[in-house]
């Protein structure tokens, strides 16, 4: 049971929080939409992998598995590859640039101060642009928010990867915004 009384306890993770406090929901959804599906030279699949990686490091099962499922949908990978994110990307094919950005994201998960000049240099050597470095840091920082929101209020999460299949498809292809931008 969540730490607060939610209108529909059957809804897992952040979904249950969305209809508790509609005043903050629109902005939260637009943040996810802009960062993960907005204009970027990183693909949505790459950005979802960053989100899933940070969520795993934060031990947030709901965010990790749902964003991993969205990444699999974008990358047309089998859902069984979700667990490869936990093992440090041995099977999922990722570019050296994305690996360097995932390293930066992992540092951000610990603390902003953990990101060193050498981490940035390593990403640049693999061709990462200022914008891509910025986006990787901001996505990682943002999931340090989402993960704390979801777990800090004690929401529940389905265990099995399979339970996230449809959710991932919806996140990848329908997107995150269910409120019109005009309402904000």
């Amino acid at each position: 049971m969540a730490h607060i009384t939610l209108p529909d306890e059957s809804l897992p993770g952040i979904v249950g929080l969305f209809n508790f406090r509609p005043e903050t929901t629109g902005a939260l959804q637009l943040i996810a939409e802009t960062l993960l599906r907005g204009e970027s030279s990183l693909t949505s699949g790459e950005r979802e992998l960053i989100a899933a990686h940070v969520s795993y490091l934060n031990n947030c099962h709901f965010c990790h598995t749902s964003h991993a499922s969205a990444a699999m949908a974008h990358l047309e990978c089998d859902l069984s590859l979700i667990d490869d994110i936990k093992q440090g990307f041995n099977q999922i094919e990722i570019s050296p640039k994305l690996r360097a950005l995932l390293n930066i994201a992992g540092k951000v998960q610990k603390s902003g101060k953990e990101v060193k000049e050498s981490d940035i240099e390593a990403a640049r050597e693999q061709g990462a642009t200022d914008r891509e470095i910025h986006d990787a840091v901001l996505i990682a920082a943002t999931f340090c928010m989402f993960n704390r929101y979801v777990d800090g209020l004690g929401t529940w999460a389905p265990q099995e990867n399979e339970a996230y299949r449809e959710m991932g498809q919806r996140m990848a292809f329908t997107g995150y915004v269910r409120y019109a931008e005009a309402d904000l």
């Binding site: 607060i4 508790f20 902003g112 901001l138 704390r148 800090g152």
Partner: peptide
């Protein structure tokens, strides 16, 4: 209230975003 607890958690989480953004970009 539940809303106060909700907002406290979300404000705290939001500043975990800001702090990492600000320091992560040096």
């Amino acid at each position: 209230t539940d809303i106060e607890i909700h907002d406290t958690v979300l404000i705290a989480a939001l500043f975990c975003l800001y702090n990492r953004y600000v320091d992560g970009m040096a």
